[in-house]
Amino acid sequence: MDTRTKEAIRYLGYGRHAVDDETLRLIRSSFQELDQAADFRIIYRIFDLNRKENESLEIGTMKVTSKSLNRNLKGCEQIVLLGGTLGTGTDLLLRRYTLTDMAKVVVLQACAAAMLEEELDIWQEARKEEWKEEGWYLRPRFSPGYGDFSICHQSEILRMLDASKSIGLTLTDAGMLTPTKSVTALIGRSRTDAACHRQGCEACEKADCQYRR
């Protein structure tokens, strides 16, 4: 079983429970359709990181107070600010099945989330190797909503990236990213190759979450 299938199963909330054959069939067919519908796009910019008092960080024009983000960025001098999306085709695919097959929609949602993470991991691994030659080392991605890093910073990140114009990524009045299968994140850049294993679930303090790794 490949990694993205395992991640889709996790997003479906199966935990340690066995997955039935019908669900596995839906997962396989969902990934096949997403491979055709999705159009992964990413935009990023690099900013200097300035540390202020009381665990506050200054990244370009954005000011953040977050203990968990501070821990993640310990020893970093720069920040890679990014936005990534699977595009509107994925949303259209989800809407089409909403009218006919809600079970398929649930599986598609999980598969799209797994696909987005996979694409981001591939992109980050390529940058890791590229920038290592320049003497830079990367920390794990850290998104608004992890730990005490407020989700309210989404709009400022999008503005700093000009994400609407560059990749069509915007925020609704309700504070939701659109296209829906999208993400914003920060990645620390350091001159020191320090081990840091806190990412995703590992960085989140909600230990009782059913989707936790």
Score class of each variant (00 low, 15 high):
152 C>T: 12
205 E>T: 04
174 A>W: 09
81 L>A: 11
57 L>M: 14
154 Q>H: 08
101 D>N: 14
142 F>A: 05
139 R>G: 06
128 K>G: 02
153 H>P: 04
68 S>R: 03
78 Q>T: 02
72 N>S: 14
163 A>D: 05
8 A>H: 05
188 G>D: 13
123 W>E: 07
124 Q>F: 03
81 L>N: 09
181 K>A: 04
180 T>A: 11
208 D>C: 08
212 R>N: 03
110 A>H: 14
194 A>N: 14
7 E>D: 11
64 V>N: 07
112 A>P: 05
55 E>M: 02
109 Q>C: 13
119 E>V: 01
135 G>K: 06
42 I>H: 02
153 H>N: 08
107 V>R: 07
118 E>P: 06
14 Y>N: 09
119 E>S: 07
27 I>N: 08
209 C>N: 06
7 E>V: 07
185 A>Q: 05
120 L>Y: 00
41 R>P: 03
142 F>C: 05
109 Q>T: 15
109 Q>L: 11
79 I>R: 11
39 D>A: 11
77 E>K: 11
187 I>M: 14
202 E>A: 15
94 L>M: 15
100 T>W: 00
97 Y>W: 10
2 D>C: 02
4 R>W: 13
162 D>W: 06
21 D>M: 05
69 L>K: 03
89 G>P: 09
110 A>N: 14
68 S>D: 12
204 C>N: 07
